[in-house]
Design a binder for these strands. Structure first.
Lengths: 135, 135, 135, 135
DNA sequence: GTGGTCTAGACCACA
DNA sequence: GTGGTCTAGACCACA
């Protein structure tokens, strides 16, 4: 599965965060299903060309968010929850709400926000987008 | 005007960024108008309970974003630009679009996003919101 | 003569430097001739809406450059030198040479420089220009 | 590469600006190429006999000018832009134009300017030159 | 007084 | 180790 993941080592976005996002995405897409095993920290790090501490950190945070779980001596797996995808999507929605609240507090009109949403969903976003993703 | 600003010194969000946001907000709200003077670096720092260098950094970044300008020996002022508020609002909209794009990429539906926007504008937001506000 | 001088109090360019430039310009234009009296520091400062120290500093530097001279108890006058204008022009040429040298060291071609000079002399400069002027 | 850089700690030109110029020059000369790593902030500061904050400031300004970029935990690198050198050269040309404009406003003739340019390019410059070099 | 630069050094997140 | 933030405080030019 590591072949499905490409990190941008030049980005300012922390690598461990990129990794978290990528794994979440794979869950969302159904590429990773509850119970599936994740690569071992060390070999994964080697394959990604990244520091083991970095993979470790990504795994730890994902575990804290109940998206994956580890069994000492056996490995790391995708959580057995049928609401995993919903849970991840809800995180994204919360982020949107935070951004909208800030905009609202800056007197941006609801109409302007709605049209911005329309633009994104009609694919007219020239923004690189990337940034943030979960936490 | 310094009494209008409250910083969260414990937040992991950099103090100078919080300060930038607060000042931007005051401009947006019309509390600060083009030509208005900002507090002197040192006295402002004292009032905020912060190091002068931190205020300095906030001022310098706002200056290179053309939101304020400084003149040695005289002081710091809000830029004389009639498009200041629009400019700041557009920054907020861009943030929203980034967040929406990420949500979209996580298969969040447009309907869900729109309803999230509705929630925020009807005042039902329990999100801490606060964070971010400028580049 | 103070009515001929307009300072930009908002500019980042130091006021005393602006004042020096303006006086030099007036000499160059023949508005001020050798032997002419300059306004007294205090009244001049008042007229310009500027701190007396600032006018003082401009006068001191101009005196150091032999462009003006002061007689204690009498006042300040334009130097009685017939080469004053040439001298001022030569200062400007030196500045150009410094800038050209830096450009040359950055591998800018002579052709590019010449064409830049042409542009300025044909009036196609969209640069605000202003900055620097003597010292 | 740090051995290629000599700062004048006594100059009134800010150290961080000198450093910015020197780095820009090295890029211009091809000594530093896109993707190349710059010395770490702290070790560079030690080698230059300067405070880390000063190097930091130079790096951060070069970063916002898109000349270099930093990644926390990894290091600082020359930007991957093929137009970097052109961009820097254009900055120098702008400086020349500003100086020429001022000279022109002081009634310096075009002929005089051209001959000054000739002098510089034929190596007859006794001007200290050094100073300035970036934004 | 006002902004700008700089040192000395601590602490943090990330790799 | 690497960059980013912050404090404490000095010194400078300018007004």
């Amino acid at each position: 599965m590591d072949t499905l993941i490409k990190l941008d080592l030049l980005s300012r976005r922390p690598i461990y965060e990129q990794l978290k996002s990528k794994i979440s995405e794979l869950v969302l897409l159904g590429e990773l299903k509850p119970g599936d095993a994740l690569p071992a920290v060390r070999s994964f790090a080697r394959d990604l060309g990244v520091n083991p501490n970095t993979v470790q950190k990504a795994y730890q945070e994902l575990e804290r968010e109940n998206i994956i779980y580890s069994v000492v001596g056996r490995g790391t797996y995708i959580s057995r929850s049928d609401k995993l995808a919903d849970q991840l999507r809800e995180q994204q929605v919360q982020r949107v709400k935070s951004a909208v609240l800030l905009a609202k507090n800056s007197s941006v009109t609801k109409e302007r926000i709605i049209s911005a949403v329309d633009e994104v969903f009609s694919g007219k976003n020239h923004a690189e987008g990337e940034s943030q993703a979960d936490d």
